[in-house]
């Protein structure tokens, strides 16, 4: 990321906060940077929550099913 890109991001965020003061319909829309904080926290939740879920339950080696069936077949052959 280049310096001008960071500046653009900051300026755009500042513009949205100004916009919040001009017009809002719900009380949460009036809190400066409400959706910024919401998105930041939500994104962290997805990244760490997702990684955690992957570690304990979901993510497996790519040959997971092949090995599973292989070991079952081996057992059957042994019988």
């Amino acid at each position: 990321m280049k310096a001008w890109q960071w500046i653009a991001i900051v300026l755009l965020t500042a513009a949205t906060v100004v916009g919040q003061f001009i017009e809002h319909h719900y009380w949460w829309e009036a809190i400066p940077g409400f959706f910024a904080a919401f998105a930041f926290a939500g994104c962290m939740l997805f990244m760490f929550g997702g990684k955690f879920l992957g570690k304990i339950l979901i993510s497996k080696a790519p040959d997971y099913y092949e090995k599973l069936h292989q070991s079952k077949e081996d057992k059957e052959n042994a019988h």
């Binding site: 409400f34 998105a39 990244m47 497996k60």
Partner: peptide
């Protein structure tokens, strides 16, 4: 407009901070 832009910018920022930890690995999901 405010909601859409803030969501996109701050999702990106959160990713940018944590990105070193997210390098893809050869895994499948159950």
């Amino acid at each position: 407009l405010v909601e859409a832009i803030q969501v996109i910018i701050f999702t990106f920022l959160a990713f940018w901070i944590v990105r070193e930890k997210l390098t893809p690995k050869d895994k499948i999901s159950l």
